[in-house]
Design a protein around this nucleic acid. Structure first.
Lengths: 336, 336
DNA sequence: ATTGGCACTCATATGTGTCGAGTGCCAGGG
DNA sequence: CCCTGGCACTCGACACATATGAGTGCCAAT
């Protein structure tokens, strides 16, 4: 039995099924793909593929459909990711270039990715590991409450409210502001914790200082890293059938950013490499018929992930190409 | 023909239809609602109601279904909004109280509203009209680029990048920072524009100053007002059928925040009053079978809107009660 | 104004038969 | 050993007919 042809058959089945969303039979296969053998031969191959668990038939005497394992095989065999068309490349460059700020850029990026792939796109906020504290600002909100604003030299701004019980006057705030800025100016986010250990303030400010320290450490650690932007949920409706109608739990999972974040970080994907999780390969039950195509982006010192989510019956080559291309463009822009 | 009973019949039809999602017939009505008349009588009433365009039948010899106009009548007749259960009230108080910051609070609020109503919830960021500038911070990002951070005394933080072509050194940044903070400290957001007219800087900083001014004015004007938080899209899947399967355009509209914002602001709703738009009453085509229950929240000087979106076939009393209650609680918290 | 009776409508469910795509298997040929 | 053509078989999809019953509108009687 011809080994190379069997691989071609699998590829053909995946492609046809993705294109038509109908189980593909032996006859249609030879016609649409110019295979130089008879349908009967293909049937034998298909029987073998089914034996290996790569394809399955929805019911007796129907065509074959790829299984998760079949898609996996298919994806693993893609060696040269097909490049995007020139038009698409231009679109990417045009849309992403010259962003107003980070939020704006991520927003555009995620929309772009969604519209390129016709799927749901997700982008994680990037965090620069070399990012350092630029400035801390304290704003007196009302009695007992202080707004802490952390500005980094990569242009991120984080804020949180601190409430330490005892009142605080203008002079106190000024003293704290100076103390913290002295201690933290130009300190990397990853070192904020240790830098704060040797901060010294007047005794009556101790309580506030420790409360603030706690918050600042927290801000520095989780700075945006735990946020996601998403777009393209409307595309879910179009490909609704593909999820076996279990679209509800999926939408829920999408809203639960924690789940998505976990999923993304669990996909190792060193930058530049596109990794794929297919259907039940995902550790989440509601993703049983969902695939995730993810990759890292950003520069060495500013790593984050972006991904596309869609039905297992998805155009993997195109999606992977889009994900890779967008990640590269964004990385370039970010490194400037 | 008994006038009062006819109103009761309409109410009963709406309630039953909302509960069962099936056209309701004359017989079932008398049974489920203990009306002391025969089905034939109800049929006469129904004929009259249909005459007025309040109800309709999907096809001959099926039960009746409320029309948009019917729902409208029903909603207008709700005088005393039924209060929430004690348990629900406690849940609201517990979830919203003691927020870490505004973002956190709005996030919680919108999720709460979604889970209370089992619909999609939307909350607009509040803007205090009396809010004033607390501090402006300029961060040097790279050559030619400056991050402008605006901090208000209500604790909002806004940022944007300015790029004015010519380089700028540390001293220049410091000069600008001082000039702008002098001019704007404690100035209300609504007056930022005029306050900036009389700012004066060294000639070589003119170009930068005007670029920055433009950005700051923009920040002050649109400060967050144009952002929405949303939750509960998963609920769309559950009530999918109700939208006649046209769920796609709906999801699109939901992603297009501009549309939603316009819709919300077009619903006059003075604070404390819950207003309802039913189906085609909405000026947006894709909302043909969607209802919006909205209200204002916040204090006098800090107005914004929140709303619940769902199928026209929606439990209006409960939804309206939830919207009103949540708006009140949030207003109280905000005013502190 | 209300009621019971009655004929009528029509969406839905159920059953039956046909059709055809697709399969598995087998025996024959290169 | 692999490929091929042939053949019987399976079973979903579709069309069609029929039965069911909820619900209606109208009318004459109260």
């Amino acid at each position: 039995m011809n080994e190379g042809r069997r691989a071609r058959v699998l590829r053909a089945i995946v492609e046809d099924y993705v294109a038509t969303n109908e189980p593909v039979g032996s006859k249609a296969l030879v016609e649409r793909h110019g295979l130089q053998v008879s349908p009967a031969t293909i049937r034998n191959d298909m029987a073998a593929l089914e034996q290996q668990g790569l394809i399955a038939q929805p019911h007796t005497s129907a065509g074959r459909v790829p299984t998760d394992k079949g898609y996996r095989e298919f994806v693993d065999r893609i060696d040269d990711v097909k490049p995007l068309s020139a038009a698409e490349k231009r679109a990417i460059a045009r849309i992403i270039e010259r962003p107003v700020d980070i939020d704006e850029m991520l927003d555009r990026t995620v929309r772009l990715l969604a519209s390129l792939t016709h799927q749901v796109a997700v982008v994680q906020y990037p965090m620069a590991t070399t990012t350092a504290v630029r400035h801390l600002e304290f704003v007196d909100l009302a009695a007992h409450r202080l707004l802490v604003v952390l500005i980094t030299d990569s242009g991120q701004v984080e804020q949180r409210i601190v409430d330490a019980g005892s009142p605080l006057d203008e002079a106190g705030i000024a003293a704290l502001r100076d103390a913290f800025n002295d201690a933290l100016h130009q300190v990397r986010l990853s070192r904020v914790g240790s830098a704060l250990e040797r901060i010294s303030v007047a005794p009556e400010l101790r309580e506030w200082a420790s409360a603030i320290s706690e918050v600042v450490v927290d801000l520095a650690r989780s700075s945006r890293q735990d946020r996601l932007v998403m777009a393209g949920t409307a595309n879910l409706a179009r490909s609704g059938r593909d999820f076996g109608e279990h679209i509800g739990p999926l939408l829920e999972a999408f809203e639960e950013q924690v789940v998505l974040l976990k999923l993304l970080t669990s996909m190792v994907a060193e930058t530049g490499r596109v990794s794929v999780r297919i259907g039940r390969e995902n550790p989440v039950e509601s993703f049983a018929s969902t695939s995730v195509v993810a990759t890292g982006y950003g520069t060495d010192d500013s790593e984050a992930k972006l991904a596309v989510l869609g039905p297992t019956r998805m155009d993997y080559p195109t999606t992977m190409a889009a994900v890779r291309a967008v990640a590269r463009y964004v990385s370039v822009i970010l490194s400037e």
